[in-house]
Amino acid sequence: MKNVIEIKNLKKSYKDNFELGPINLNIPSGLIIGLIGENGAGKTTLLKSILNVVKINEGSIKIFNKDFKKEENIIKEEIGVVLDNTFFPELLSPNDINIIMKGIYKNFDSNLFFKYLKDFNLNSKTIIKEMSKGMRKKLEIITALSHHPKLLILDEPTSGLDPVVRDEILELFQTFINDEEHSIIFSTHITSDLEKIADKIIFIDNGKVLLEDECQEILNNYGILKCSLEEFDKIDKDDIISYKKNKYNCEILINNRSKLKKKYKDFIVDKVTLEELMVLMIKGVKEC
C-alpha cells in the first residue's frame, strides 16, 4: 500500500513551551485516519504543520510521494481542507464561494458543487451569516470535496453538529473513500464517529504519538477489566496499562483482551471504546 503522507522527525515548538514531536508517521492511502487526543495535545498543530499554516522547526513532509517544501502548490491542488473554526467570510453566499473557488483550484467542479448543495439542502443564495453552524460546516465540507481532491484533511469537521447531520457527513466521507486513491485524515473529539468509519487511529498526547494502530485492532485488543477495590491487588501488575479507582470499583485498561479474559475468568472484561481508552491512557494511573 502506498503512503499518502510520510512525516519524518517533525518538530514544532511554540513560545509557550508546547512542543509537538518528534513525529514520525506513515499514513497509507485509501484509508480514513482518525486523529484523537485531548484539547491542546497537538492535533491541530500537526494538521496545520502538514498544511504549512504553521512553520515547522525541523523535519520533512512528503505528500503523494512529493516533497511538500518543493511541490507545495501542486500538492495543495489535490487536498481538500476543513479547519476547526469556520472560515468562509460571512458576507458571502455559496454562489460567491463557487465564483471564488473556480479562480483558485484548477479542477474546481461547479456542477459537483451545486449538486452537493442540492443534496445537502443548502440554498446557493443564502449568505453564510444567516446559516446555522451545521449548514456552514456542510458548506465547508462540500467545498473541500468539489475540486476532486485525493486527500481530505479535516480538523474537527463534525464538532457541534447534530447526530443527523453528522451521519450525513460520515456517509459522504465513506462514499469519498470508495475510491482507493482517496484518503481522509481527520481529528475529532467525537470518538464514536471514528469507531464507525476510521480504519486507523493516531492518538496524540502532549505533542507525541502515544498510539498508532488500526481502529478495529484497538477495539478488539484493548479492554477494561472491572474489579472491586479489594480485588485490585489480585491483578498482575504487568497486565495493567493504566487504571482508575472509583468510589466502589476499579477500571483497568488492559491489552490482549481475549487472553486476559481467560486469565481473569472471575472478572468482567469489557470491550473498550476509543473514548474510554483516551481517558484511561491520559488520566489513568500508569504506575502500580
Binding site: 496545520k48 498544511l51 504549512n52 499554516v53 502548490n73 495543495k76 491542488e77 487536498i79 481542507v81 479547519l83 473554526n85 469556520t86 472560515f87 468562509f88 467570510p89 460571512e90 483558485i104 483550484y105 484548477k106 484533511i153
Partner: peptide, 14 residues
C-alpha cells in the same frame, strides 16, 4: 474576523 487567513494559506499558492 472570519479566520480566513489560515484557510487561504491551505489553498494552492495561498
Amino acid at each position: 474576523y472570519n479566520n480566513f487567513d489560515a484557510y487561504g494559506i491551505t489553498l494552492p499558492n495561498g
